[in-house]
Each structure stands twice: as structure tokens, then as C-alpha cells.
């Protein structure tokens, strides 16, 4: 069986500088893959390119049996390839539940006319309720994102991508700014995603989280993959220690 996501020779350059340089990897159906590397290694650029935010990225990207290179971001999202952002980026004017509804519903061009004639639309979307429960935000649906604490905002960002019932989520530093307790809670939620049939590509600085959660890890440095393998191997790989962990690996 071919993998869910297959990336071959992905390349992004800005002004002569190759931010992502011939990167290839794959994510299996319901797998958890980590993407790590020092600052400026091109991790976020990778996520931007895979989710359709960098139109000039080159290379082959196959997702769920289709070649998706050149697809705009929204089309990839509709096909089940979704992402989160480092800075969460909630829709602050909408309640948490409404944020999720946006992601969970699809519209057609004629929806405007139907919506204009339908008074008092009450959404009870099962995907939305499921995503709120799955992230432990069941009680916060009516609150606004600005009223939530930082940790809950991050969870809300996760809930929003889950509400669209994705096949693969690209998570960009979901643990940034979380304290240790919140980080631990997040890890257990992430580990439960494959059971729900959702594959994960995880980018984070929190080595504990990545080593703990992922089955397979790819290490980027200066836009290239310098090592790949299960957590234990990557952790002891001398190249990785050199490039990323520095002296901390001694601990």
C-alpha cells in the first residue's frame, strides 16, 4: 500500500537561498511523524509548502493517491490535508464553536442564496462537537478565543483542524509557549489521533514531546534531511547531536 503522503524532492528557494532543499519523506496512513531541526532549518517552510501556502514550491507531492502540487491551500484542506499555525491564528471575532463550524462545513456558490433565506441557523454539527470533546474543550464552545488562556487557545487551534475530519494534520509547534503540564496533556491527545484514523506530521522544539510521541523522525538542517529513523536511533545519531542538540545531548 502506498503511503498517505509522499513528498519527493520538495524545494523552496527565497532569493537564491534554498530554504527547503530536495526534501523527501513520507507519512503512512494513521502514522505519527516528527520533523525536527534547529532554527532556520526549514521546518515551517516545509509545512507552508505542503499545505499550499508557497505557490512557487517545486517537487512532487502525492496525497491520498493524488498529485496535489499546484493545488491552492483550501483545496488541499478540503481533501483532508490540514495544518495549524505556530501563532495559532484563531478567528477572534467568532466563538470557539463558530471557529470549528467554519472548518467543518463546506459551501457551494449557491449557498449564499440559501443562507440568505434561512432565518436563525442553528448549527449542531457532530464533527464540531466531536472535535470539542476530543480536545477537552467541550465547555468552552461559546467563549471567544481571546478569552482563553494560551494553552487552551492552542487546543482550540487543534480542535479547528480536527473538526474538518482530516486524514493528515500538519502541526507547527503545537507546544510552543505551553508549560510542562500542558505539554504533557497535549502529548497524550496527540498519541490518540492515529486511533481515530488521523495521521500527524509534528514540528516542534520540545524534544521531549517529539521523541515521546513520534514513531518516525526526520531531522532537517539548512533545508536538508540529515537523518531519519525511529526516535531512539535519531537521538543517538552523531550528525543530529552535532547539528541540533549540541551539548544538551550529554544530559
Amino acid at each position: 500500500m502506498s503511503p498517505l503522503l509522499e513528498v519527493t524532492d520538495l524545494m523552496v528557494s527565497y532569493g537564491g537561498l534554498n530554504a527547503v532543499d530536495l526534501v523527501s519523506f513520507s507519512v503512512e496512513e494513521a502514522g505519527i511523524v516528527g520533523l525536527i531541526g534547529p532554527n532556520g532549518a526549514g521546518k515551517t517552510t516545509c509545512i507552508d509548502a505542503l499545505s499550499g501556502f508557497i505557490p512557487h514550491a517545486t517537487g512532487r507531492v502525492r496525497f491520498a493517491g493524488e498529485n496535489i502540487e499546484g493545488w491552492p491551500a483550501h483545496r488541499r484542506a478540503e481533501h483532508g490535508l490540514v495544518r495549524t499555525f505556530q501563532s495559532v491564528e484563531m478567528f477572534d471575532d467568532l466563538t470557539v464553536r463558530e471557529n470549528l463550524i467554519v472548518a467543518a462545513t463546506t459551501t457551494r456558490w449557491w449557498s449564499v442564496f440559501i443562507d440568505a433565506c434561512r432565518p436563525s441557523y442553528r448549527v449542531r454539527n457532530i464533527d464540531v462537537e466531536w472535535a470539542l470533546e476530543a480536545t477537552g474543550l467541550g465547555g468552552e464552545g461559546e467563549r471567544y478565543p481571546t478569552e482563553l488562556g494560551h494553552g487552551q487557545r492552542r487546543l482550540a487551534g487543534l480542535a479547528r483542524v480536527l473538526a474538518s475530519r482530516p486524514r493528515l494534520v500538519l502541526l507547527d509547534e503545537p507546544a510552543a509557549g505551553l508549560d510542562s503540564a500542558e505539554s504533557v496533556a497535549l502529548a497524550s491527545r496527540l498519541r490518540s489521533l492515529p486511533d481515530l484514523g488521523i495521521a500527524v506530521l509534528l514540528v516542534d522544539h520540545d524534544m521531549g514531546l517529539v521523541l515521546d510521541v513520534c514513531e518516525q523522525i526526520h531531522v532537517l538542517d539548512l533545508g536538508r534531511v540529515i537523518a531519519s529513523g525511529p526516535p531512539r536511533e535519531v537521538r543517538t545519531n552523531p550528525d543530529v547531536v552535532e547539528a541540533y542538540l549540541g551539548s544538551e545531548a550529554d544530559e
Binding site: 499545505s51 499550499g52 501556502f53 491552492p72 491551500a73 483550501h74 484542506a77 478540503e78 490540514v82 495544518r83 495549524t84 499555525f85 491564528e89 484563531m90 478567528f91 477572534d92 471575532d93 467568532l94 463558530e98 471557529n99 463550524i101 467554519v102 472548518a103 462545513t105 463546506t106 459551501t107 449557498s111 449564499v112 443562507d115 440568505a116 434561512r118 436563525s120 441557523y121 448549527v123 479547528r160 483542524v161 474538518s164
Partner: peptide, 22 residues
Amino acid sequence: RSPTGLRWLAVRANERAAAASG
């Protein structure tokens, strides 16, 4: 109050996140 309106407000709030939400 409809999904269309929510989508409009989503675009207003954050175009990148809106695109990422399909």
C-alpha cells in the same frame, strides 16, 4: 448567522487561517 457569514468573518479575521480551514 449562517455558515456563509461565518466564512466571511473568518476571511476578515485571518486570510491564512481561513485558507487553511478549507
